[in-house]
Amino acid sequence: MADVIAVVGPTATGKSDLAVALAQRLDGEVINADSMQLYEGMDIGTAKLTVAERGGVVHHLLDVWPLAQSAAVAQYQLLAREAIADIRRRGRTPILVGGSGLYLRGALDNLEFPGESAEIRGRLALELDELGAAEMHARLASVDAAAADAILPTNARRILRALEVIEITGAPFLATMPAFESVYNCLQIGLDRSDLDDRVALRVDRMMSQGLLDEIRGLLPKGLRQSPTAGKALGYAQLLNCVDDQGEVTGDLTEALAITVRATRRFVRRQRSWFRRDPRVRWLDGAAADLTTQALRLVLP
């Protein structure tokens, strides 16, 4: 059996539930690899499993970052590898789960992150303020189409980082990524399904009925709007545009939810493209009635 298992793929495919089912059968513990589930209090909008839904399985790297923290893949890499080592040291199976492709590669692969330049980053930040994220994304597309395809046009932080790395290294951003070589004996199980467009719409509706707007209101005093990363998350960013700093609705919630659905569907296509490039991923239909059985056959052939 592999030393490390990862359940990967697009949003809304059922990854979290499969990871719990595998952990229950393999004496495992789950390590979160969803960049937004790292943040404290972002529960409903990130589809974070409740304690009851975790089925008694220990979960690592949930709610470990305050909202004010900027997401850093290099820091996540350190935390994830510490968790993997701890779980393995206790004789249990680490199971990573999430759809944040760069975070997963950072945890699992021989990936070293390029340095940073405060000068370049500062200059690019000023250009972002002047031109906007869409124009900076277009610039990225002109010099590295593959990177632009993998990064949402609204994700200003990642756009700036990609442009910074390109300027520092003189090479395309994704060219700094290593070959598909894991540092572990790892099995990656990918989930996909044909009904994701419908599932995304249902998921957004369910999040609203579960209280996403109230969750956002509760996070406003904690700095959600000012957060460089958390406040840009899908769903949160769109609803933040509809409420004032006291949480009063000032915009069109119906249109905000429609925008969230469209943006999430685009994100699903980007996730699918990212993970499909990795030849190591063993794909399963997330809609299969015997999904757990099929996954266990891959784990224990």
Rank of each mutant, 00 (worst) to 15 (best):
M1E: 10
M1G: 10
A6D: 00
G9L: 00
P10Q: 06
A19C: 08
L22M: 06
A23D: 04
A23E: 04
D27F: 08
M36Y: 12
M36I: 10
G41I: 02
M42V: 14
M42D: 02
K48Y: 04
E53L: 10
V64I: 15
Q77W: 00
L78C: 12
L78K: 15
L79D: 08
A80I: 03
I84Y: 00
A85C: 11
D86L: 13
D86S: 15
R92H: 13
P94I: 03
G98D: 03
L104V: 12
R105G: 03
L111P: 02
L111F: 15
P114G: 06
S117Y: 03
R121G: 09
H137M: 12
A138I: 08
L140F: 06
A146E: 14
A147W: 03
D149N: 13
P153T: 09
N155H: 15
R161K: 14
A162T: 05
T169P: 08
F173H: 13
M177D: 13
A179G: 15
E181H: 14
E181Y: 09
Y184R: 07
L187M: 09
I189W: 02
I189G: 00
S194D: 15
D195T: 11
R203V: 10
D214F: 06
E215G: 00
L220C: 05
P221A: 06
P228D: 12
P228N: 10
K232A: 14
A237Y: 08
L239T: 02
N241G: 14
Q246P: 09
G247P: 05
E248P: 06
V249I: 14
T250P: 05
T250M: 08
E255W: 09
A256L: 06
V268W: 00
F275Q: 01
R277F: 08
P279A: 04
V281H: 02
L284N: 01
A287M: 08
D290N: 07
A295F: 02
L296N: 00
V299Q: 02
